[in-house]
């Protein structure tokens, strides 16, 4: 990540952590940046509008 993002609550740098998602009854996981203290997960715009959107489209079937 070129953009340096930290957790505003804990002041900590983020670490890649296995994160779980549900969609249409399917369960997937991906390593995402996450605060090691409070656990909040960062989803970037690029990810949401890229891979996540594509995955949603695949799982929506039609």
């Amino acid at each position: 990540m070129e953009r340096k993002i930290i957790c505003a609550l804990c002041g900590k740098s983020l670490e890649m952590t296995e994160t779980f998602f549900d969609y249409y009854g399917h369960h997937l996981h991906k390593d995402l940046p996450c605060c090691p203290s409070c656990g909040q997960v960062y989803v970037s715009k690029e990810l949401a509008e890229g891979k996540m959107r594509n995955t949603e489209a695949e799982l929506e079937d039609k």
């Binding site: 399917h26 997937l28 991906k30 891979k51 996540m52 995955t55 695949e58």
Partner: peptide, 14 residues
């Protein structure tokens, strides 16, 4: 089976 790793699923789904 079920999808698992998102990146892997997406690559193969296409």
């Amino acid at each position: 089976g079920e999808p698992d790793d998102l990146d892997d699923f997406l690559r193969q789904a296409k």
